[in-house]
């Protein structure tokens, strides 16, 4: 396959940045999107150019490091897929592909396609934990958890914190991320003692970071590589209203 890429290049946080067009030839349809960028980067290095910076780690869709907006879609148009698991067979030969970083004020661009997602870490630090002595694992079933609750908590816990929800949201809201973390803990017995303070602290931190407000557009869920359901946001709102009483 031969492709034309329009990639966001930005030397550093202070640089204004611009779209740069690259031609990539002989791309295998079996390559992942990141491998295609690796091939381009090897050529750029040989030509003495600066390679395109992008985040990546596990390359098997579970770490949450990779992520770029491809043709306007967070992680590309393929549903429930991270950028590293997006394969070039989903693109047509001679396609023109636009590649941009996550766009949100709380995710400042570090370089090219790399953004600083420390704002997510600060939301977790505000309350996304349980303050219990971390001894050995308790016996199974010593604390019963309803199957439905266990499943819903697990669904929420699959959030990898990649930030695609923010990138896809027309309001730049981090509600799906924050809601997934709150829901994961508030459905389980271990999360109960700090349920109210957690909801309040995490929602307040999310707002303080400068994310937009949620208007329930559902774009977050649609672009989430883990398919975190929109119900988690209702759960977050429920917990927050409960805590505000």
């Amino acid at each position: 396959m031969n492709l034309t890429l329009k990639v966001w290049r930005q030397r550093g946080p202070q640089d204004k940045g611009r779209m740069v067009t690259y031609r990539v030839e002989d791309v295998s349809p079996d390559m992942s999107f990141l491998e295609m960028l690796d091939v381009l980067n090897e050529r750029l290095i040989l030509e003495g150019d600066d390679p395109i910076a992008f985040d990546h780690d596990c390359r098997e869709g579970i770490c949450g490091m990779c992520g770029m907006v491809i043709n306007g879609y967070a992680h590309g148009e393929q549903v429930a897929t991270t950028t590293c698991q997006l394969h070039m067979r989903h693109f047509e030969d001679e396609a023109v592909i636009t590649v941009e970083p996550w766009r949100a004020a709380p995710f400042p661009v570090v370089k090219d396609l790399v953004v600083d997602r420390s704002s997510f870490d600060r939301i977790i630090q505000a309350g996304g934990f349980i303050s219990v002595p971390a001894g050995s694992a308790p016996d199974a079933h010593s604390v019963p958890v309803k199957k439905a609750d266990a499943d819903a908590a697990f669904d929420a816990a699959t959030c990898i914190g990649c930030g695609a929800c923010v990138a896809a949201c027309p309001n730049g809201s981090a509600s799906l991320f924050t809601a997934a973390k709150i829901t994961h803990l508030s459905l389980l017995p271990q999360g109960q003692p700090e349920r109210d303070s957690r909801a309040r602290a995490m929602v307040e931190q999310m707002d303080a970071e400068g994310f937009g407000g949620c208007t329930n557009t559902g774009e977050c869920t649609a672009s989430c590589p883990k398919g975190i359901p929109l119900d988690t946001i209702a759960q977050m709102n429920r917990d927050y209203l409960r805590a505000s009483k």
Binding site: G72, Y73, E100, R103, A105, G172, E219
Partner: peptide
């Protein structure tokens, strides 16, 4: 304020 730099590529809505 949350998105000072807009996306260059336009896309279709995927949801709702």
């Amino acid at each position: 304020r949350a998105r000072p730099v807009k996306y260059a590529a336009r896309r279709k809505s995927q949801a709702n």
